[in-house]
């Protein structure tokens, strides 16, 4: 069954506890940033920013929304990054049997970083700036293997981030969807072939370009290209 995370976006306040707690647990460095007219900062995921709260403020049916999207690896049930990276080195990406966590090993340095990123339906992996490594969220494998919650879940004040067995999380997602639909008729769950499932109050496209992945592409486009073509431009 493995573990799963359920992210209820109707409860997110963008306090960014998760963004910072991730760096705290992993002792990752901060980045040199500037304000470019948005609160979203660092501007994107990076080798040192594995969890990022994305901000958008769309008008949906004439009503202003300020939407927040804590973005990180979805830990796919069948991770395309693993298929891609392991073509170059068999041990580059592994999947933990007990939890289902998808983990980059140090052999990821032997894989084609751009190809690995492109393979990801959610555009998550990021290469090292002047090196060969790539990185992404590892589901706090050290914590969850020891009965602790991932840092981002542990820190979350509002019940936006949840962690448990696949069964528990799928049940919670279903219950919450029903509750939320009363107030947000457009509410929907995101992709379900992953271990990080989101509940969106409005059309996922309003949250982030990579909020959901479309079905596997049949044509020459990669999945990333597909949603790049579908998604609106992110703002604020």
């Amino acid at each position: 069954m493995g573990k799963m995370m359920f992210i209820d976006l109707t409860r997110c306040t963008a306090c960014r506890g998760c963004q910072v707690a991730c760096k705290q647990w992993k002792s990752l460095p901060g980045e040199a940033t500037r304000n470019t007219g948005t609160h979203q900062n660092p501007p994107d995921l990076s080798f040192n920013t594995l969890k990022l709260v994305r901000f958008s403020e769309p008008k949906v049916d004439g009503k202003l929304h300020w939407l927040f999207f804590p973005d990180a690896c979805r830990h796919c049930l069948e991770p395309p990054c693993m298929g891609q990276a392991n073509l170059d080195d068999e041990g580059a990406v592994i999947q933990d049997e007990a939890t289902g966590a998808v983990i980059f090993t140090d052999k990821i340095a032997n894989a084609d970083a751009e190809a690995v990123r492109t393979a990801c339906p959610y555009d998550i992996p990021r290469p090292e700036k002047d090196g060969k490594m790539s990185s992404k969220c590892d589901f706090c494998i050290d914590r969850i293997s020891n009965g602790m919650k991932p840092s981002c879940v542990h820190v979350c004040p509002t019940g936006c981030m949840n962690f448990g067995t696949e069964e528990e999380m799928r049940a919670l997602a279903k219950t919450r969807l029903e509750e939320v639909k009363k107030h947000y008729p457009q509410a929907t769950l995101g992709n379900d072939d992953v271990r990080v499932m989101y509940l969106f109050a409005v059309d996922p496209k309003n949250y982030s370009y990579n909020a959901v992945a479309e079905a596997a592409p049949t044509g020459p486009m990669t999945r990333r290209e597909v949603f790049a073509s579908l998604a609106g431009k992110p703002k604020a």
């Binding site: 693993m82 041990g91 592994i94 933990d96 049997e97 090993t105 140090d106 790539s134 914590r143 020891n146």
Partner: peptide
């Protein structure tokens, strides 16, 4: 190396392995 977001594979032999024992040690180390 764990903390940089990529786990060393030296502790593991292949796919589909349970990481729990190695991780428990890592935890203890931290």
């Amino acid at each position: 190396k764990f903390t940089a977001g990529a786990v060393s594979c030296s502790a593991f032999t292949g796919l589909g392995i349970s990481l729990a024992p190695a991780m428990a040690q890592a935890e203890i180390l931290k």
